[in-house]
């Protein structure tokens, strides 16, 4: 249950707050808590109503066999009562170990892991490379920066359609490849190329965020560190390895975590790029959506169970990630 309390602020707090905090807490700590609770009340209420209640309800649904045929619904003036029944953990067992579980869950799971790893690695490496280039004293770097941010500035649902035009069978990309006498893959039909195209489009969309965040990180590194390193005869690579990378650590750990979460949950790109046409290129999120809303009858219970499993994967990942970061930090402290 670690929370995101960063070293930086932790230290700052350690310097400032405890003293006045302690003193006041002794005097009127009771009152202070009262204020705090009044201030967080709106969010707690909203989260309770909009997140916890649906979450609990969704979890309950996963224990039933609800689909669109047996749920409560209104047809014209007739109201039909819900008739789904409780089936315990059957949905989970079916998804994880049932017949054809590999096709329905594990293949998508593996593809989701590959997708997340590939996209985040590409985002980070390209973003860092561009950030390093932009961090130099270079003529026209503001101009480059403005253009490079463009994929982030335009809403994803707009740019994905641009990509769809380009990736179409006789679209510009294949025309160009043919003109160069290279094979022209069927980007939107063939499974491998669908996956390739999805990663490509997502990389295109995601690099600007990484680039801009890392550029911010680079600019906050104290330049005297570089001077000192140079005095000591460090090569450019050594400066990069021992000054730049450690200096980027706080920003990197945050953006990588955000990147993993966002990419893992990335819905719009795959959904808009392929619609319902590519069962094998669906990551778990879009696959769960398709079960719940992209087919008839709508498998509500199964879809919700996928959702809970996804959440579980993310929670496990995040806790490990934080523990790993913290362990690293302790080593640094020693």
């Amino acid at each position: 249950m670690t929370v995101a309390i960063d070293r930086a602020t932790g230290k700052r707090r350690g310097d400032r707050t405890p003293r006045p905090g302690l003193g006041r807490r002794l005097k009127n700590g009771y009152q202070r808590h009262w204020y705090a609770y009044a201030m967080i009340a709106p969010v707690v209420i909203v989260l309770g109503v909009l997140v916890l209640y649906p979450l609990a309800y969704g979890f309950y649904l996963t224990l039933t066999d609800a689909d669109s045929l047996n749920s409560a619904r209104t047809i014209g003036v007739n109201e039909i009562e819900a008739t789904y029944k409780f089936v315990g953990l059957d949905n989970y067992a079916d998804i994880l170990w049932g017949e054809t579980a590999y096709d329905r869950f594990w293949s998508h799971f593996l593809w989701t892991v590959v997708w997340t790893a590939a996209c985040v690695t590409l985002h980070y490496c390209i973003g860092l490379g561009l950030a390093l280039l932009l961090n130099q004293k270079l003529r026209g770097r503001t101009f480059y920066r403005l253009i490079l941010v463009l994929p982030w500035a335009v809403p994803t649902f707009v740019t994905v359609f641009g990509w769809r035009f380009m990736l179409a069978d006789s679209g510009i990309i294949n025309s160009a490849l043919e003109a160069l006498h290279l094979p022209a893959p069927q980007w939107l039909e063939d499974t491998f190329w669908q996956r390739f195209a999805a990663i490509m489009v997502n990389t295109w969309c995601g690099v600007p965020f990484m680039m801009v965040s890392l550029l911010g990180g680079l600019q906050s590194i104290d330049s005297s560190l570089y001077e000192a390193a140079e005095m000591d005869g460090a090569s450019a690579w050594q400066r990069f390895r021992h000054v730049t990378l450690p200096g980027l650590r706080a920003v990197s750990s945050t953006v990588v975590l955000l990147g993993v979460i966002w990419t893992f949950n990335q819905f719009a790109i795959i959904f808009l790029l392929f619609g319902n046409t590519a069962p094998d290129a669906q990551i778990l999120v879009t696959w769960a959506y398709q079960l719940g809303f992209g087919q008839q009858p709508r498998e509500f219970a199964q879809s919700a169970a996928y959702g809970i499993l996804l959440l579980a994967v993310l929670i496990v990942f995040t806790s490990f990630y934080r523990r790993w970061l913290n362990r690293d930090e302790q080593q640094l402290a020693i």
């Binding site: 997140v51 979450l55 949950n265 999120v285 719940g292 809303f293 919700a304 996928y306 959440l311």
Partner: peptide, 9 residues
């Protein structure tokens, strides 16, 4: 980190 799949149903 809620995936949309958790809450949508």
């Amino acid at each position: 980190m809620f995936p949309i799949a958790v809450l949508i149903v």
